[in-house]
Write a protein that binds this DNA or RNA. Structure first.
Lengths: 280, 280
DNA sequence: CGCAGCTTTGACGCAGATCAATTCAAGTGG
DNA sequence: CCACTTGAATTGATCTGCGTCAAAGCTGCG
């Protein structure tokens, strides 16, 4: 199913043994989530391995192609290893509303594990490297390792929390709304080590941004210029820079608590190392 | 914690044996969810009982009081047995945005089981009867019965799916947007047997409705009048009537698939019986 | 060079916010 | 049974944020 829906190119074979590259990335990506869980209860090596072993193929998806098509009944879930993706819905046949922007480490298709039918399509915004994890493996894991099941559940709960926040933030005027998105992306990218100092790479057009916040691309442009004029952000090329984090947060009414990363205890070394890699 | 936050009145004692009233309601409420799960795999009586036994107190919450306060770290989750509740957030200190309307059978506070901090408060819109289920019991259940854990997970996934839909529906003009909400409520109330024919009871002011859809109460009023004028809905007193379901769905671009109730296999007898009870 | 996609700018119209006043419905107490 | 109160529904007038249409710069790539 997946193969027919998106332009893909197998990067690693599906054998459980020889996709060492994928395993390395996966361990790196899953690590923050492991820490989250371990801040409460210990996770055995066996449990960690069980999760890592579950990954099947790693595929590439070209920009603008669907990772999960509308109404599909996928038999596997997708973990973003690289690139930006989004979940979206088309309303009234005209407007495309992006419900979530996904970055490295997001388990984008996890809900389809239990919801037989994928209720919203997911598209690659840029070219993406995606790990495909068979549902079968996930279900087996969640049966044998209740704590891992809880980890997966937790991931979807955090997603849902972010969705609710997005719903509320719509009440803000356009500049604050967009600033809020910039704040959220900074925090989420920092978690996976994709920030460098106070800036990050945002390979997204203003039209995409508009579809994400529910504004026309023209108005996004004007709002961004407002932000630039106020010295709240710099955004040229694909680089977003935040001169004054505190001031931006206040302006955007941003409080990161809804992302539930405060217990992640990130190691700064990891953050900076990964950041260096990201711009090579 | 809970006791201090809301005006409550214990209806049944917390002993695991003598709250027979609560057990009866609970079994009735959980039944549809059981069927959902059982459409895929069998659920043993022991599993069902485990879930039912987990309920602690049943309390009453007065209208407009919080069931879960902002930033609380609840040690139990709440299941709505009767009445309407809502999750909300206050944006920029001025606007209150309702992120979800909850009805009978909704496990409103389930995310707080894993997300230590409740990221959004939940309030009673009308007076509510609420079953309080200790987290401890839920965790024990989810460890021992992986399928029940999956059931709880599923409930939160459906919630999240509805949130995403709400995000998208914002793109519709006010009348269609409100019509969509009426459609969603009809389907969800039908699932728990709170509809009678093509109408249901909606004990909610236009201001609350406005906070739910993100519009001013004045504009909600005008939009509702548009709907009335087009013969799409009747809404007088607390009764919403839908003369022509198909027409309303088309107008609202409503497709119930995102609620994932199509596999619930509801028994019509139950629906009508429950409906009769609901207006006595 | 020249296409193609993105950003920027301008002009104009409208959906919906806001403020304010009036009507309506349901109690409540005398 | 009727003044009085309180909260909600309704209506009107005005203002504005944002959408839409359209054209003009910018940038990178074949």
């Amino acid at each position: 199913v997946l193969a027919s829906l998106c332009v893909m190119e197998p990067v690693a074979s599906s054998g459980k043994g020889n996709n060492s590259n994928a395993l390395i990335s996966l361990r790196m990506i899953l690590d923050p989530l492991f820490r989250y869980i371990e801040s409460r209860e210990h996770l055995s090596d066996e449990e960690k391995w069980a999760l890592e072993r579950s990954v099947g193929d790693v595929i590439n998806v070209l920009a603008h192609k669907d990772i999960v098509a509308h109404g599909a009944t996928p038999s596997s879930s997708s973990l973003i290893l690289e690139g930006f993706a989004c979940g979206y819905q088309v309303v009234a046949g005209r407007h495309r509303q992006i419900t979530a922007l996904h970055v490295m480490g997001d388990f984008v298709d996890l809900p389809s594990l239990l919801l037989k039918r994928a209720d919203h399509p997911i598209a690659a915004v840029t070219q993406c490297r995606v790990a495909v994890v068979p549902h079968e493996a996930l279900l087996r894991i969640s049966d044998r390792h209740p704590r891992l099941a809880r980890l997966l559940w937790l991931a979807t709960l955090i997603e849902a929390s972010a969705d609710r926040r997005r719903l509320a933030v719509r009440r803000l005027p356009a500049p604050a709304h967009i600033a809020h998105l910039f704040c959220e992306l900074f925090v989420r990218l920092k978690v996976v080590g994709l920030t460098r100092g106070n800036s990050y790479c945002l390979p997204v057009t203003q039209m995409i941004l508009g579809q994400a916040v529910g504004l026309s691309s023209v108005h996004v442009n004007r709002a961004v210029q407002t932000l630039r004029g106020a010295g709240l952000i710099n955004w040229s090329g694909q680089t977003v820079t935040i001169p004054n984090w505190t001031r931006l947060c206040e302006f955007a009414h941003f409080n990161p608590s809804y992302l539930h990363v405060d217990q992640l205890k990130l190691a700064d070394t990891r953050t900076s190392r990964a950041a260096q890699r990201s711009d090579s």
